[in-house]
Design a protein around this nucleic acid. Structure first.
Length: 112
DNA sequence: GGAATGACGATAA
DNA sequence: ATTATCGCCATTC
């Protein structure tokens, strides 16, 4: 398990029940990597965390896991669009007010 | 160390 | 609405 993967999982752990983040949101909050890097971590280690609270930016689930993910989201009463397969990101997206310091940057600048 | 990979995202057609 | 293209970047070959 790489240090980067560790931070991704630590952040996903913090997503409250009933709220979600896009892969890209996780990357941006960490200030490192991108959506695909977060997705790669979830693919390998997702089972260790509330993986179902991470999905695509447009509110859809990754096709590979949609059949398992959708019921879990509904069970948490996550706001869905009328089609029932897309999350209303504008309502369900989690906006953390303060994030633990250790999730910030991998190598903090030793200077400045 | 360079190339390939990929639970993505934004945009264009 | 759907498909195609390209950028992204940590990890893995």
């Amino acid at each position: 398990m790489t240090p980067y993967a560790r931070r991704v999982l630590d952040l996903v752990e913090l997503i409250p029940r009933g709220r979600v983040l896009a892969y890209g949101d996780v990357a941006e909050l960490l200030g490192q990597g991108g959506p695909r890097q977060v997705a790669a971590v979830m693919s390998r280690h997702g089972s260790e965390v509330p993986w179902h609270r991470v999905l695509r930016a447009n509110g859809t689930c990754a096709p590979e896991v949609a059949s398992r993910q959708l019921p879990l989201l509904r069970r948490e009463r996550v706001a869905m669009k009328p089609d029932g397969i897309r999350v209303r990101m504008v309502h369900a997206r989690w906006v953390p007010d303060d994030l633990p310091p250790h999730l910030r940057e991998a190598d903090p600048p030793v200077n400045e």
